[in-house]
């Protein structure tokens, strides 16, 4: 009974450690290092990495940029929301607010876009379904990432950060068309 008694040896530090533990610590350490190195490895060779590009912004400033894009590139309307088709490779904007993702984007498959995301009010969660890409959208910050949709079809942005009573109706759309 010594897990709750003082160690049997006054100098427990110099009691030799069993082989089994030494081997296990070695194996576990190697595994930990592999897991650690996987992250930088993926930055170099993987395709799904978040950029750390972000800017402080204000809801008004971001809204203005979104409105400019909508005015310039609107191609349609769905459920009262503009559908916007910005040029390939351009800066595209989507904002989260209580309780919608605005506007609807139409993108071309296999083309890169610089996607800017921000919130007008509280935290929101950008959860692109059914792809399952999830990002945290924070008011006052504009996140910029280069995204290349590699599937065509209809995609939904679910809000997956709690944002009040209407949280569950907060949906957005991204259409990806074959070019």
């Amino acid at each position: 009974m010594s897990s709750f008694l003082p160690p049997a040896e006054r100098n427990w530090w110099s009691t030799p450690v069993g082989k089994q533990e030494v081997i296990w610590v070695g194996i576990a350490l190697v595994w930990c290092l592999i897991m650690f190195l996987m992250m930088p490895y993926w930055h170099l060779y993987g395709k799904q990495n978040l950029s750390s590009e972000a800017y402080q912004t204000t809801p008004a400033k971001f809204q203005q940029r979104v409105d400019e894009m909508v005015a310039q590139y609107q191609v349609g309307e769905e459920a009262g929301m503009p559908i916007v088709k910005p040029p390939v490779g351009s800066d595209v904007y989507m904002l989260g607010r209580l309780w919608q993702w605005y506007p609807i984007l139409e993108l071309e498959k296999d083309q890169p876009y610089r996607l800017h995301l921000s919130s007008m009010d509280w935290n929101h969660g950008f959860s692109l379904q059914p792809v399952n890409i999830n990002l945290q959208i924070i008011p006052g910050y504009e996140m910029v990432l280069t995204v290349t949709p590699d599937q065509a079809g209809e995609f939904t942005v679910v809000c997956n950060e709690f944002c009040g009573i209407g949280h569950h109706v907060m949906l957005g759309k991204i259409y990806v068309k074959e070019n």
Partner: peptide, 23 residues
């Protein structure tokens, strides 16, 4: 793994202007 959100009242999104269905 199928994308179902945490802290979410309604996975049917009742009342949303746009629609989405989980598998």
């Amino acid at each position: 793994t199928l994308g179902v959100s945490r802290r979410h009242w309604d996975m049917d999104f009742t009342g949303a202007m746009l629609a989405f269905e989980y598998p």
